[in-house]
Design a protein around this nucleic acid. Sequence first.
DNA 1: GTTTTTTGTAAACGCCTGTTGACTTCTACC
DNA 2: GGTAGAAGTCAACAGGCGTTTACAAAAAAC
Lengths: 200, 200
Amino acid sequence: MAQRKSPFRLCSAPAPRPRDAEQTRAEILRAARLLFATRGYANAGMREIARAAGITPALVVRYFGSKRDLFLAAIETDIGLAPFLGPDRATVGRHIARYFFSKPLRDADTLSILLHAAGDPEVRDLATELLNARVIQPLARWLGPPRAEARAALLLAIISGTWLFRQALPMRAFAGGPDAALASCLAAQIQHVVDGLPEP
Amino acid sequence: MAQRKSPFRLCSAPAPRPRDAEQTRAEILRAARLLFATRGYANAGMREIARAAGITPALVVRYFGSKRDLFLAAIETDIGLAPFLGPDRATVGRHIARYFFSKPLRDADTLSILLHAAGDPEVRDLATELLNARVIQPLARWLGPPRAEARAALLLAIISGTWLFRQALPMRAFAGGPDAALASCLAAQIQHVVDGLPEP
DNA sequence: GTTTTTTGTAAACGCCTGTTGACTTCTACC
DNA sequence: GGTAGAAGTCAACAGGCGTTTACAAAAAAC
């Protein structure tokens, strides 16, 4: 049975979204970011992304060229670390800790996308470079000497470790909501790195 | 040209390994552990594992049933954390930090296999459970109150974060060999969790 | 020495993936 | 109102995956 589309549509046929290239592109990107962040690159299929965006896989390719290019577009957003890097260095540990212990962590976070790309040979190097350029280096500049880059990497490692057991391998101990004691300990550790490392 | 096999073999024909089921099984397990640890579950193919073990993919299935069962067998080994959990609580932070900053980290480490399984829907829950049972719980028992499980999870998160940027997403700052300052800071942080968390 | 069991290989199967090309359908312009 | 082009769908392709089946060869049992 042929379905009439317009202007007198049958009720059983779901209303097709008005054709708007810009909005469709944005919708694809939104779906891709969400799925890349929650399932990882390899496990987020083009068909699944297309279905989440309400369109066809072929259209995803037409808009973004390939899956890898879609991934590139998906991580072309700010990592969202800038708000923490203000002049107030004394409380930044607490702010970062609270942000990364907030529940739930923003699903389509760029950091989640990049961390979930670990171990995927197709995008691993890309994620590594981007984490270096977008997180480590700005963080290192903000931290300043001594050992700015090493301290920045260590700070990101602490943040990523907590992310790992809240999002990727959800542990019972981390699942019970924001634990004040955990958060404060995390804050202290971050602050410790911010203030500088002890000499060996 | 037919190749003679035995007892007078031509030099050009590589010597086939003598048929030894037990050794073949061990060889498969060794190859699987190495590839699961370095490439992750999804990206370690049966053909690749079989090739690394010097046999045929069909034989891997005959020995272990399926890829998932092979993974189960691959993680059925000690995590290697026990040596650190001795009576000397004052220096455990330093020992653990030195171990996880040692270069290179053991490739086929069970911890690497489990952490690399993050985000893979096929084995993620399994890895989570095993990390709980084999790492968090023993660690929590050893740490003792207060908040034993939360502190154990936080400790594992710190260790895993450094693992992430040394193995999975190799960062330049972590690649330059054991950094004494980094290691000592890591040791201090671990020790801090071992000694107990500050009250909020 | 023959037969049976174990140990291994080769080729294929069904499924899923990213991607492509041919084809509709809606929209905007002349 | 007719038409060019954008927006979207559909079915198929090539390739990789884990797995299976059929078969060969070595070792062991009789």
